[in-house]
Amino acid sequence: MDGTLDHVMLRVANLEESLEWYQTHLEYEEKDRYEGDGFTIVYLGPEEMHEDGALLELTHNEGEDDLEVGDAWGHIAVRVPEGELEDYYQQLMDEGVEDYRDPESCGGRYAFVKDPDGHEIEIVKRDPDEGALWSLDHTMIRVEDADEALGYWTRKFEYEHTGRWEADTFSNYFLKPEDAAPEEMALELTYNYDGRSYDMGDAWGHLCVRVDDLEDDWEQLLTREAPDYRDPESNDNMYAFTKDQDGHEIELLERDPDADSLFPF
């Protein structure tokens, strides 16, 4: 299984407003678009993104303009160069982005803003060799049992546990595929010690993992007892979906680098 995190999908209430926000403030460009029956999907990313860099997928469903950002979904994180966090945060403020959590309030280590739908976006400092400016660094989801969550990703997807941060009330765990390129997006699992449960909401979509062979890798996941949520056959053998132990949706997708479209349709 390839295992690369291919994209993260967020639902938006106003597609044009969201596109303008990401294109203006994060300098993203539209990579591809699919107009479906009652919905539109747009892939976005930095102009000079790595071949294994993750895309941002924005999905808009017609008639859905009141989306709920649940607390099971945490945030996406984007990269800026070391030593320039404050400068880039100030740039966003000068462009009219709402001041949510500035670098000073985060100990100078990171900062947060929100997009038009309230999706949280962390800004993290990285070496320029680790990915293009504003490229996706990681996606954070919250889990109710850290041992189960870590076991799910290490057993079913063969991810490596690459780091952790333990505080008084919570822990963060970072995972990536084995031998992942520095430019690849990581997965961050957040576990709060107070035993709380979470609401998915409908503004949070899914993570997508690249596979080498959709049918074979799907069967391998079933052998490893991954939930049979939406199998390849039910999706015309173009993609499939499983779920983790908390119900986060995970898409499986073969990526043909020579295809005319980023979509398998």
Rank of each mutant, 00 (worst) to 15 (best):
G3Y: 05
G3K: 14
T4F: 03
L5D: 01
L10A: 05
N14C: 10
N14V: 12
L15G: 09
L19Q: 12
Q23L: 04
T24I: 02
R33Y: 00
R33T: 11
G38M: 10
T40I: 14
L44A: 11
E47N: 09
E48W: 08
G53Q: 13
G53Y: 06
L67S: 01
L67F: 06
L67T: 04
D71I: 03
G74D: 03
H75L: 05
H75N: 13
A77Y: 10
R79L: 07
P81W: 06
P81T: 09
P81F: 11
P81S: 12
E82R: 14
G83S: 01
E84G: 03
E84T: 13
D87H: 11
D87Y: 10
Y89L: 07
Q90A: 14
L92I: 00
E95I: 00
E95Q: 15
R101Q: 13
S105D: 14
S105A: 13
C106H: 09
G107L: 06
G108T: 08
A111L: 00
F112Y: 15
V113E: 07
D115S: 08
P116Q: 00
P116V: 00
H119C: 08
I123P: 05
K125Q: 15
E130Q: 15
L136S: 11
H138Q: 09
T139W: 00
T139M: 12
T139L: 12
D145Q: 08
D147H: 11
E148W: 02
G151D: 14
Y152M: 08
W153E: 05
T154S: 14
R155D: 15
R155V: 12
E160N: 08
T162P: 01
G163H: 11
D168P: 05
F174D: 00
F174T: 01
P177S: 02
E178F: 13
A180M: 02
L189W: 08
Y191N: 01
Y191H: 15
D194G: 10
Y198A: 12
Y198I: 09
M200Q: 15
D202Q: 08
H206E: 09
E215H: 07
D217Y: 01
Q220W: 10
Y229G: 01
P232Y: 03
D236E: 15
A240W: 02
Q245P: 02
Q245V: 12
G247Y: 03
I250A: 00
E251S: 06
R255K: 14
D256R: 02
D256G: 04
S261D: 09
F265C: 04
F265M: 09
